[in-house]
């Protein structure tokens, strides 16, 4: 009777643990008996090691516990095909990294038995958890003797990358028209004159369409009028910034031909 209850409770215990393991990583797990090298994506286990007494003398023993999923920073480019194992007194913590910049495995054994949860971190550094192993026997654990430390961050941490400035310079800058009410009649007349000179017509044949401010000489390149009244432009790679100007767009009244012209702030007393 006692044996029956013990068996029952042990079974229940494992079921509960399995549930938490699954909950932890949000994915599936399977029993160690099914584990073989193939299922571990080519990772081979060596039965020379007793997992209860994993000796890692070259490593600093740390009591750091995992609070959240971990990203392994790739600051050690020459990672070997190694299994990095740290042996804690109370909790066994294992970190496995395979020589493949596209992939790394993170194993988080629990105190109870030897449970392994494997996290797969893909090249996009998203934390996608795929528990490969829930339980594994001592005989199936292998530790490479060619161990190297890698940097690890206990907290979730993204990779940062530089975006080349040359690419930033290619990103169009959008400018929107400003209200003509900001200008006096005299200023608008001067603008119309400027547009008329550009369009080679009389001033009274010209109407101002839009006014765009802050167009310093020598800062913007590839100035294009967009359909929605905005203007797009890019920055010069090596700008030689001069006086501030307004960009004006206008239409000839008799043929609706669109013209653009610049007028310096100083020309209209701004």
């Amino acid at each position: 009777m006692f044996k029956f209850f013990m068996k029952f409770f042990l079974s229940l215990y494992h079921e509960i643990l399995s549930f938490f393991v699954e909950f932890d990583v949000g994915v599936y797990a399977f029993k160690a008996s099914k584990v073989n090298a193939k299922e571990l994506n080519g990772f081979k286990f060596d039965n020379n090691v007793n997992t209860n007494k994993i000796e890692t003398p070259k490593f600093t023993i740390s009591t750091t516990k995992i609070k959240s999923p971990m990203i392994i920073t790739n600051k050690t480019p020459s990672l070997v095909d190694a299994l990095v194992i740290r042996n804690f007194t109370e909790e066994l913590f294992k970190l496995i990294k395979i020589r493949n910049s596209q992939m790394s495995f993170l194993c988080i054994p629990r105190k109870y038995d030897v449970y392994l949860n494997t996290a797969l971190i893909t090249s996009s550094e998203s934390l996608i958890f795929e528990a490969k192993v829930q339980k594994i026997s001592k005989k199936e654990i292998h530790i490479s003797h060619n161990l190297k430390t890698i940097e690890e961050l206990i907290e979730l941490s993204p990779y940062t990358k530089k975006f080349p400035i040359t690419k930033v310079l290619q990103i169009p800058i959008t400018k929107y028209p400003i209200k003509r009410e900001k200008f006096s009649e005299e200023q608008l007349e001067l603008m119309r004159t400027k547009l008329a000179i550009q369009a080679k017509c009389k001033k009274y044949s010209m109407s101002i369409e839009n006014i765009y401010d802050k167009f310093p000489v020598g800062l913007y390149d590839e100035i294009k009028l967009e359909k929605d009244t905005s203007v797009s432009c890019t920055l010069y790679k090596h700008p030689d910034i001069g006086e501030l100007q307004l960009l004006l767009t206008g239409k000839r009244k008799y043929d609706t031909h669109t013209t653009k012209a610049f007028i310096k702030y100083s020309e209209i007393g701004l």
Partner: peptide, 17 residues
């Protein structure tokens, strides 16, 4: 005028997080 541009790769939080 741009001097530096840095960005992070997307982070996808896990169910646990």
């Amino acid at each position: 005028f741009p001097l530096e541009f840095q960005y992070t790769d997307p982070i996808l939080p896990t169910k646990l997080q």
